[in-house]
Write a protein that binds this DNA or RNA. Structure first.
Lengths: 157, 157
DNA sequence: TGGGATTGTATGCAGTGCTAACGAATAGGC
DNA sequence: GCCTATTCGTTAGCACTGCATACAATCCCA
């Protein structure tokens, strides 16, 4: 390919290649994926001590705000299907961060409640979230943050 | 619930529960995750026939733009570590969408090239991407798209 | 009452991300 | 040139997420 016996440097023809990714760079979805990846990585670092993932924190947070919420309701708010919700709840329950109770009003449902351990973890998590948020927001003005959230919300409805 | 007998508006945070998620809604990272999830789901639907993921398409696209690129270089541009890059390349190679060749200039590296099958798949993929992009962009003006990409880019550098 | 929908559950599979370790090859200092 | 440190690819293994399917219990409505 490149190997033109004479000048093979030319090969790199196209690019003043310093990490250029060409047309892909014009794809909105691509930037969303990269931004998500960057957030994910930073979140993971921030939460390495707590051993919690974004989803797990979201779930505990929501259960704290809505004691007795059902799995299906939880899943819908966080845009997760039943199976995924299950595995997350299972893990949190195994760590005694929350518990399931049969719903008194609907026998099909499980009512979710935070356990003391979950409460404590959530307190630490909120602190870590604040840190994480500062990392994200640090590169924006308040107005830009507002704009960004507004635009993102339009994507996920 | 919320019922603070006096002014509960201040509080309502809590919920006229129709899918409200409370404070989490103020977390930028949360919106990025949801937007990413929505994109991911739509992408998957769009690409169900091609049986390709976002990463796989990105990789093929980049290999097409930079024939002979190494795995490490590829991974850095797409923000993936070596191991992840490996598994993706493995899968694409197993489907004969691309091939590895020893780099003539550096014995440690593998040079990646698209195979005919990958070429064809990429053509279809680009069409599907256009569709997917329209789905995303449909909710924005051109100026908003520009703003969004600019803001997202600031997150992933 | 009976049939259809909802909810939770169990299984299994694919994709992604990370770590740790190893061998091969290169690059840099001497 | 030689030795060491580094880079790259590779393998293996683990955790999390997402999806599909199937099943049982429960609820709701006609």
């Amino acid at each position: 390919m490149r190997v033109r016996d004479d000048d093979l440097d030319a090969v790199t023809p196209i690019d003043h290649d310093d990490g250029d990714i060409g047309e892909i760079n014009e794809i909105v979805g691509f930037h969303i994926r990269l931004a998500h990846g960057a957030c994910y990585r930073h979140f993971t670092e921030t939460f390495v001590d707590l051993e919690l993932t974004q989803k797990q924190v979201s779930v505990m947070w929501l259960v704290a705000d809505h004691p007795g919420i059902s799995q299906i309701d939880l899943g819908q708010r966080l845009r997760m299907d039943r199976a995924t919700t299950m595995t997350i709840i299972n893990r949190l329950q195994a760590r005694h961060y929350l518990r399931r109770e049969k719903s008194p009003t609907d026998g099909r449902k499980q009512a979710l409640f935070l356990e003391p351990g979950g409460d404590q973890a959530l307190v630490k998590a909120r602190r870590a979230i604040r840190e994480h948020e500062n990392w994200v927001k640090g590169r924006f003005t308040d107005a830009e943050v507002k704009t960004l959230m507004e635009l993102l919300a339009r994507i996920h409805e």
